[in-house]
Amino acid sequence: MNPPNAKPGTSVENKTGSWRTYRPTVDFKKCTKCGICASFCPEGCINIDPKTGAIIDYNYCKGCGICAKECPSKAITMSLEVKK
């Protein structure tokens, strides 16, 4: 009895942040907390902190750049990832 079933939400074990070539950085001075970046993030790894602004979970961010492209206040910039 061993059907190929999987536990829900366990993909969080895949830390897809390791794929990243470009890293988004949020300028909290510019961030208006509008939530557009979070809405369009393919990973669903951006949250909006009501105090600071867009928080990116780099464990999952693949560095696609959609957030930076879609941000209406240009608060997110992409820069080459420096691997440790």
Binding site: M1, P4, N5, K7, P8
Partner: peptide
């Protein structure tokens, strides 16, 4: 009680499922 049914299996798992 959510569950994912019908996941796909990479080579390290597939044959085990078929043998089972």
């Amino acid at each position: 009680n959510p569950l994912t049914m019908g996941a796909y299996a990479f080579p390290q798992y597939y044959q085990g499922f078929r043998q089972d």
